[in-house]
Nucleic acid binder design. Structure first.
Lengths: 222, 222, 222, 222
DNA sequence: GATGAATGAGGATTCATTCAT
DNA sequence: AATGAATGAATCCTCATTCAT
């Protein structure tokens, strides 16, 4: 059963397709080698094209990297969005279930696209303002999303949000950071599934949030 | 009028001192530029010595980097240890206060040694097994430490600590991620101090941990 | 409403026209960037055609450059010829006025086609025998022309040409070189008009020639 | 008779020496190939060193080129200066003989250093402001020098030098162009020596200048 | 008549690393 | 104990040129 499509040596394909192939190769290479260590030669070879073509379409290593970041960030945000909103055509689900769905989608996506996640989490943040800014935008988008969920949860519990706006922001930041770190850990540690990571975080986070909303606090001595 | 101070042009100093100067320069350079982008030229110049001397003492870029990681990891662990144990010559303090002391020490140390922290957290983990392993050892040491504290806390509360080893690893990861995220957020957001971030995290973490140890869990639907 | 003008997007034009557009673009690019720095990409874009078409019509960068040289050289020679002969349908003018007319035409043309002049004077002479030979032919043509004028001037003055043939050749070479250099200078220096340059040279040259023909000489000491 | 110095494979020489070798190679290559066509590879090989050493000492192609221009310009100016002043320890010579000495020195030097002259005259002027400025400085120095001589000559002849500054610039341009043209012609035409060409030029120039200073002018018709 | 897709070859520049002193 | 001199091996990027349609 010979397949005609996506074969290794397919020549003369439309630009849009080739571009995606290049981005695939670039994400993989950047993710595994790191931005500096990844060579354009390797990326081109992996994409099955010559180097000049990569430059013709993507202009420079920097622009190629930026394109990778944008694509992967958009894909991750979309995955989380879909996880939260996608399934529920019916009545709005409670906030905790929404958070759970989002976290699951997040961990699933990062587990399925480890290179993309490495690009976002490890590479983009460590190679200068312009790249970091690109990721910061995504992170803020997700943080805002989580912030909304926490507020909703407070209302669901018929409680005055005893949490000031800045508290909520801080918590969201902590949550996102924890999630990022856990995703990394889950990717690196054999035998840890996305679901498991999601459950761990959810367990920890939701319980903690619950406690906070009950008014339990911890105060530094003195 | 020979000067003895650590001034720039001090010649003929003992090997140990020269080595520390080189490591200082290397940590700074690796932390700010990244492993690949850091050049031995720059490091040697910053250390005020010639390149061959760097090679004479530290053999290769890889070994130099490893030496940096080891030194910074040891310093961080020591700082946390000292934060927890150092002050308390008297009776053992309650576990929560120990954890608070540890977190504060951690935050303080990383804030005061941003390059060292960058080497450990960003560079070492993204440049191949051998380096990552070095950091993993440190992380495990800290995780074990925290595990001990949690167990202690459970005993303080007369409860069985119902947390398995891997759970603890995951929690440690989450904590570090949250801490890092909060630290960055605190740095970027005007009006949020590092201490405040630490308190927020402690609040969140301790409440959550407390909940967990009380047996409160969150379970996925169905 | 189809437009016939030489507007940018006119499609399907006869070969001769397209070729001239390409040469226009090439002369401009070669003149401003230099032979090596000019890229076929830039030329094609400036000409408003695709690169393969340039190759279809002109075969290679070398041939394109040669075509530029030939066209510009021919245009310059024609301009000078026309300056000298064109206006005078009546009786032959004295030699000095012919020379003046030729120089004026020369400086005017080079001032009006700076890129073409740059191609001939700067680029063609600095990129290998084949191109230089092309220009040398033109230069010799002009030199011969001037040689004739000088001889004529001598006869006009009813003097035995006290100048041997080789002297005349040398003088013609000197004149042409001086003219070329002045043209360059006039192009580069704001505020120097073609007429002014022509007058300067004419003044200098004609006076000098007059002196020579009067038998005034300068001899090296000893 | 084996020679130990300047042998092809002399290793480990002091920096200053190596630098001169590199400049020698660079001048030769730039002069013959042109700035763009000259490759650093070729220069390094011709200099008998590796490419990195060229970069270590001279930083970039641009800086290397600038260094060439500076060195050659200084050498040419020095040669002319020495030609004019050097020999005459006694009383000041008449201006015409000084000019003759200068021209001869100029011709001799450029004939003996054709690559250096090509760098100055052909390459430096066609590759952007910064390089051209470097040469313009030299040209101005020489022009000022010649201007001085002309003024002196006028005073020698008890005449007001009726030449404005820009006239002098134009004349200098014309002279250089004529000289270069003559030099090339002399090289190509069998039986014409460089000295003869110099005499021809001197003859032409001095007579012309003399005429100008006598107030003889040529005026366009009408 | 005209072009989108593609590449082999080469060029400037940098870097980790080593000798010889 | 310390260094000035030197390089092999990449790396990013560009360009003239050609197919297949």
């Amino acid at each position: 059963m010979p397949v005609k499509s996506t074969g290794a040596k397919a020549k003369r394909m439309p630009r849009a397709v080739r571009e995606q192939q290049m981005l695939d190769a670039a994400v993989q290479t950047f993710g595994q080698r790191g931005y500096r260590a990844a060579s354009m030669d390797e990326i081109a070879e992996l994409a099955g094209v010559s180097k000049p073509l990569v430059y013709l379409y993507l202009n420079s290593k920097e622009e190629l990297f930026t394109a990778c970041i944008r694509r992967e960030a958009a894909a991750l945000v979309a995955a989380v969005r879909e996880g939260v909103e996608g399934a529920a055509a019916g009545p709005r689900r409670p906030a905790d279930q929404q958070l759970w769905a989002g976290l699951t989608a997040f961990f699933t996506h990062t587990a399925e696209h480890p290179d993309g996640w490495a690009v976002l989490h490890q590479q983009a943040r460590t190679h200068g303002e312009p790249f970091a800014a690109e990721v910061a935008a995504m992170r803020d988008e997700i943080a805002a999303f989580v912030t909304g969920l926490i507020g909703e949860a407070a209302r669901d519990a018929h409680q005055d949000p005893a949490l000031a706006g800045r508290d909520v922001s801080g918590l969201a930041q902590a949550l996102v950071g924890a999630a990022e770190s856990l995703a990394q850990w889950a990717n690196e540690t054999p035998g840890v599934s996305a679901k498991e990571a999601a459950a761990t975080l959810m367990n920890f986070a939701w319980t903690g949030l619950g406690g906070l909303m009950d008014g339990r606090r911890w105060s530094p001595p003195r």
